[in-house]
Design a protein around this nucleic acid. Structure first.
Length: 406
RNA sequence: GGAGGGAUACCCAAGUGGCCAAAGGGGGCAGACUGUAAAUCUGUUGGCUAUCGCCUUCGAUGGUUCGAAUCCAUCUCCCUCCA
C-alpha cells in the first residue's frame, strides 16, 4: 500500500493537482515536499497537528519533508484582521517560535541527518530587490487570473490590500526557491492554500521548465463545521505549558460522537480496521473509542508517560478508581484554613472573579470533595483537607486539586 | 484630495438626555436530563459588597447639563462613493 493510498484512506486529502503522476512519483521516487508554517505564535496547535501527521506519514514512506517557517512573510505583518493589525514580529520572536515548533515536531518528525529540513523564507525574501522581483517574478503573474482565484473572490467584496494580494507571489516564490535549493517538487497545505500552491507550480514551470505538484488536506473540522481544536478559551495548544496534557486529553475525551472516527483516522496511527471498528461503536460503547483516541493523541504529542498520567487522573475523577495524584493541582499557602472558600479559589485563579464564584455557588455548581458548597460564606474547614489537599469541582467536569504548601 | 456612513459588553446588534450595567440574538457558564456525547428545557452572563448600595464601562479627549451611550467640539480608526 503506497503512502498516497494511506493518505487517501485516512481522509487527509482534499485535492491534488495530478493524481496519477503523484501516485507514480511517490511510489517510484523519494521526493522532497514542503508545508509552510506561520511563526506567529509560540506554539503549534491542533490545526497544525494534522499537517505534522501528514509529514510523518510521508517521511515514514521515505520522502523528505521541509518545514518552511514563514519568517519573511511574518515580518510583513498581515492587516487582514479588522480591528487589530496582526502585530509584526521581530526576528528574535520568529526565531524563538520556529525553535519551539521544531521541538514540538520532533516527536513525530525525524530531523536527524537531513531526513527533514527546516527552512525559513526570511532567508530569501528579506533581501529581495523590488525591481528585480517585479522583473523576474512579477511578469509571470496575471492580475486577471489572480482575481479569479477562489481565495481572492470573497476578499474583493470585503476589501483586499495590495499587501495581502502579494502573499500569493511570495508563496509562489517560496516554492520556486525551495525547488531550486532542495529540489522540492511538492507543496502541501490546508485547502485554503490551494490557489497559492497552484501559483507556485506555475511559476516553477515557467521559470525552470519543471513539473511540480500540489496537494491539500481536509480542514480539520467537527461535524458541526467548526474548527477542531478550538475551544471557547482559544486554541488547543501542543505546548504543555499552554494546554496541559490533562486538558489536552480531556479535549479529545469529550469530542462529539460523530467526530471520533475522523479524529482517529487523521490524528492517530491506529490501523484503519481498528479505527473503523471504534468509530462504529454506538451509544455508551463509543466512550471506549474516545478513551483510546484521547490516550493515543496525547501520547503522540506529550509522550506515553503524560498520556498515562492524564488517563489515570481521568479515571480517578470520573470513574472513582485510582488515586488523585495525577489530577492537575494548584499549590496554595498553608494559611487557607479558616479563609473563605471563594477568596481561596480566587487567589488560586480557579475562579476569575468573586462575583462569578458567588454565581457558581448560587447555581449549585461548586463542590468540595464532591460535596456541594451550599453558601457563599463557607470557610475552609479542617475536614475538607485530605492528604494535604482539597479537591475542587467546578461545574460538571472541571476539577482542580488544591495542594497545601507545607 | 472631496462627499457621506460608522465605532456599543466575548461576537452580532438595539438604544438618540434621566425608567441604561445598557433590549434581542449568538456564544459562554451553571442546573435538569444523560454516556465526561449530542439535542432539549431552565437559570445566568462588568467588578466590589451581597442588604440597601457603591465603582468602572458604549472608539479617545475635552465641554454643555442637576443628569450623557445619547447633545457640542477636537482627535483616532474603519467602510462606501467620487478623483
Amino acid at each position: 500500500m503506497s503512502v498516497l493510498d494511506v493518505l487517501q484512506e485516512r481522509g487527509y486529502i482534499q485535492q491534488m493537482t495530478h493524481e496519477e503522476e503523484i501516485r507514480e512519483l511517490l511510489e517510484k521516487e523519494k521526493i522532497t515536499f514542503y508545508i509552510g508554517f506561520d511563526p506567529t505564535a509560540d506554539s503549534l496547535h491542533v490545526g497544525h497537528f494534522l499537517q505534522i501527521m501528514v509529514m510523518s506519514h510521508m517521511q515514514k514512506a521515505g520522502h523528505r519533508p521541509i518545514v518552511l517557517i514563514g519568517g519573511g512573510t511574518a515580518m510583513v505583518g498581515d492587516p487582514s484582521g479588522r480591528t487589530d493589525m496582526r502585530k509584526m514580529l521581530t526576528k528574535e520572536e520568529i526565531d524563538r517560535n520556529a525553535e519551539a515548533f521544531k521541538k514540538q515536531m520532533q516527536r513525530l518528525i525525524d530531523f536527524s541527518n537531513g531526513k527533514a529540513i527546516m527552512a525559513n523564507n526570511a532567508d530569501w525574501l528579506l533581501n529581495l530587490n523590488y525591481i528585480e522581483f517585479l522583473r523576474d517574478i512579477g511578469v509571470h503573474f496575471s492580475v486577471n487570473r489572480m482575481l479569479t482565484a477562489e481565495c481572492f473572490k470573497s476578499r474583493l467584496e470585503r476589501g483586499l490590500s495590495f499587501l495581502e494580494f502579494n502573499y500569493m507571489l511570495m508563496q509562489a516564490y517560496d516554492f520556486l526557491e525551495l525547488n531550486r535549493r532542495y529540489n522540492c517538487v511538492m507543496q502541501m497545505g490546508g485547502d485554503d492554500q490551494w490557489s497559492n500552491i497552484i501559483a507556485g507550480i506555475e511559476l516553477i514551470r515557467k521559470k525552470e521548465g519543471k513539473q511540480a505538484y500540489g496537494m491539500t488536506f481536509t480542514l480539520l473540522t467537527t461535524s458541526e463545521g467548526k474548527k477542531m481544536g478550538k475551544t471557547q478559551k482559544g486554541a488547543v495548544w501542543l505546548d504543555p505549558n499552554k494546554t496541559s496534557p490533562y486538558e489536552f486529553y480531556q479535549y479529545w475525551r469529550n469530542i462529539a460522537d460523530a467526530d471520533v472516527e475522523k479524529a482517529l483516522a487523521l490524528l492517530t496511527f491506529l490501523p484503519m480496521d481498528e479505527v473503523r471498528r471504534l468509530g462504529a461503536l454506538k451509544d455508551k460503547e463509543i466512550n471506549e473509542a474516545k478513551k483510546i483516541l484521547a490516550y493515543e493523541v496525547t501520547k503522540l504529542i506529550h509522550g506515553e508517560e503524560e498520556a498515562i498520567k492524564a488517563q489515570k487522573a481521568a479515571e480517578a475523577l470520573f470513574e472513582s478508581g485510582g488515586d488523585l495524584d495525577n489530577v492537575p493541582s494548584v499549590t496554595v499557602s498553608s494559611d487557607v484554613l479558616g479563609k473563605k472558600i471563594l477568596d481561596v479559589l480566587f487567589e488560586a485563579k480557579i475562579i476569575p472573579s468573586k462575583s462569578e464564584g458567588r454565581r457558581l455557588v448560587q447555581q449549585g455548581g461548586l463542590y468540595i470533595n464532591n460535596e456541594k458548597v451550599e453558601s457563599i460564606d463557607e470557610y475552609i474547614k479542617d475536614d475538607m483537607i485530605k492528604d494535604n489537599s482539597i479537591l475542587i469541582r467546578k461545574g460538571k467536569k472541571e476539577y482542580h486539586r488544591l495542594v497545601i504548601k507545607e
